[in-house]
Simulated scan of single mutants.
Amino acid sequence: MTDVAVVRHPVPTLLRRLDIAAKLLLVLMLATALAFPAFGNLEDKGAVARAIAYPALAFAVPVVWHVWWRERASFPWLADFLITITCFTDILGNRMDLYDAIVWFDDWMHFMNTGLLAAAAILLTLPRSATLGATVERALAFGATAAIVWELAEYFAFISKSAERHSAYTDTLGDLTLGTLGCLVAAVVIHLAWRHGKLRTSAPQLEAAIAPVGQPTP
């Protein structure tokens, strides 16, 4: 028996830099928002909850990869960036007051960010050979769950304590619908990119990542 050979896929330098920059700026903006809530436009918007959840989410892939996948798979930069950018854009959108200044911005964020998270889940858990049906199924299973968890978190973090709670039901239904549509779009885009050879990365060399060291992969 020999150790599994890990294929290290080349990654664009720009993607690495964007991912690292997004993480650093995210932490900086969250620290600033905690110190000066008004500056980050996060007053009564669950600033503390965001400060805990967003870094945990943004650094989850690096931690998991370092502990379990480092010797078996190359780092999934694209998936990690997609996760980080969802946290970053939410904080940036609040900082720039886009949620209040642009009427459709909240809807766009639910559509886009749920789709990005679903795309990351697909890249992390499915091989490029996955069928369109399997890809859509994975996107909906993860994305719809993520959308529901987000709505519950929003409600308990700040909506239940604000005047928004009286109109929250209608808004929640819209957000869940947009998040689901975002997941479907993400699934189709990734599947087409895989089929046309435009996207080389998938699950972090899925078979190599889950096979025991010393056991050859198919």
Rank of each mutant, 00 (worst) to 15 (best):
68 W>E: 13
36 F>H: 14
73 A>S: 14
31 A>G: 08
62 P>R: 05
50 R>P: 02
44 D>P: 02
20 I>D: 03
36 F>Q: 08
72 R>I: 06
67 V>Q: 03
69 W>C: 11
8 R>A: 11
14 L>A: 04
27 V>Y: 07
31 A>L: 11
33 A>N: 01
20 I>M: 08
39 F>C: 06
32 T>R: 14
72 R>L: 01
26 L>P: 01
54 Y>W: 12
27 V>N: 02
24 L>K: 04
17 R>A: 03
19 D>E: 11
37 P>D: 06
67 V>Y: 04
6 V>A: 00
18 L>K: 03
45 K>C: 06
31 A>H: 10
49 A>N: 14
32 T>A: 11
21 A>F: 11
52 I>F: 13
69 W>N: 14
51 A>R: 13
72 R>M: 02
32 T>G: 10
36 F>Y: 11
10 P>S: 08
58 A>H: 06
34 L>V: 12
24 L>W: 03
62 P>A: 04
6 V>I: 00
10 P>T: 05
59 F>N: 10
31 A>C: 10
26 L>G: 11
38 A>K: 05
53 A>C: 13
59 F>R: 10
19 D>I: 11
9 H>R: 09
61 V>D: 14
60 A>Y: 01
57 L>R: 09
11 V>I: 09
8 R>C: 10
14 L>V: 09
24 L>I: 10
74 S>G: 15
35 A>N: 12
58 A>F: 05
70 R>T: 06
40 G>I: 14
8 R>S: 10
24 L>P: 04
32 T>V: 15
6 V>K: 00
35 A>W: 10
60 A>Q: 01
40 G>S: 14
68 W>L: 15
28 L>Q: 12
16 R>G: 10
36 F>M: 09
54 Y>S: 06
50 R>M: 10
46 G>Q: 02
37 P>W: 13
7 V>L: 07
18 L>W: 09
23 K>G: 04
56 A>M: 12
60 A>M: 09
31 A>E: 07
6 V>F: 00
59 F>M: 05
34 L>Q: 13
62 P>Q: 04
26 L>K: 03
19 D>V: 12
72 R>Y: 06
66 H>A: 15
55 P>V: 10
72 R>P: 04
62 P>V: 09
35 A>H: 13
32 T>Q: 08
19 D>K: 10
37 P>Y: 07
